[in-house]
Design a protein around this nucleic acid. Structure first.
Length: 279
DNA sequence: CATATGTCCTGAGAGC
DNA sequence: TGCTCTCAGGACATAT
């Protein structure tokens, strides 16, 4: 669901709001429970209306809109959040609307489930909440040595460790399985048993998988929840080699049948032949 | 300290 | 057909 490639696609899709002045912020009524929003709507509105957006950027799996007040609007899609320009897929899941005096928009914060969050942070809060203590280097930028240094002493399973945003930011459940399959490492391998060569290959595979997924505008699973800003599905799901393919033949070796296991309450997919396991 | 588990939320799909 | 139940997994809080 929205992991690095999907959030990157969202940011690119709304890049045109950079430089625009916020005319109004609305929180439409909905029969659904509200997503967590802070500060409370009246104060939130007062602090953003009249401000300009100076930049749109992705921080890990979050969308950040920097304002000329040095505060920033931070949207965390988590499982089922999206941003749309102008055309929301339906009204009841619209959680907030940013209107501009001219130019594109409105910018719509949409979330099917109430797990997304929207907050306005001061520069100080931003540095604290999304700083290096809370968030590791971005998965697209971290080098092989840094990746290794951050995880190699851990005794956690590598698949679980890759999801730790403090270690490395941006990798989620889908791409963790895909990365490990590409390098032939069993997902239950303890981090401290991986070789320098394997860390090197892991970093390269991470950049490879994530870049290809961004080029395909992310993965839209069968539940159809993730969509681009324009409401189109991503295309990377067709390129998944293991995720969601339990019981099917491995596309790599043609012999193994993809297995699904559960690690830390999350599904992991792997090929028992390609990813034979040093456990 | 490191690691493991529980919680939030809605809708899709399974099973009866 | 229509009900109940389970599952999906982001990040963080709490427990071990």
């Amino acid at each position: 669901m929205p992991e690095l490639p999907e959030v990157e696609t969202m940011c690119r899709g709304i890049a045109a709001v950079a430089g625009r002045r916020i005319h109004a912020l609305r929180f439409p009524k909905s029969p659904l429970r509200s997503i967590p929003i802070s500060p409370r709507p009246a104060l939130f509105r007062r602090r953003v209306e009249g401000r300009s957006i100076t930049a749109v950027r992705r921080v890990g799996k979050r969308v950040v809109l920097d304002l000329d007040s040095s505060a920033a609007i931070v949207f965390e899609p988590r499982m089922s959040g999206r941003v749309h320009l102008a055309c929301p897929p339906d009204a009841e899941h619209v959680r907030a609307v940013l209107e501009f005096a001219d130019g594109p928009g409105p910018l719509i914060f949409w979330s099917m489930r109430g797990l997304s969050t929207l907050c306005l942070l001061t520069a100080r809060e931003l540095a604290q909440r999304l700083g290096p203590d809370r968030l590791g280097p971005d998965a697209l930028r971290i080098g092989a040595d840094a990746l290794r240094a951050r995880l190699q002493a851990s005794r956690r399973a590598i698949k679980v460790a890759l999801l730790d945003q403090r270690a490395v930011a941006g990798i989620g459940n889908i791409y963790a399985s895909e990365i490990l399959h590409r390098i032939g490492v069993h997902p239950e391998t303890s981090c401290d048993r991986l070789s320098p060569r394997q860390w090197k290959r892991m970093q390269a595979a991470t950049v490879g998988v994530l870049s290809e997924a961004i080029a395909a505008q992310g993965s839209t699973l069968r539940d159809g929840r993730y969509r681009t800003t324009r409401g189109e599905p991503g295309r990377f799901q067709d390129k998944h080699r293991v995720y969601g393919r339990a019981g099917l033949k491995c596309l790599q070796c043609g012999r193994g049948r993809i297995r699904k296991i559960v690690q830390a309450q999350r599904s992991t997919y792997y090929c028992p032949i390609c990813q034979r396991g040093a456990r």
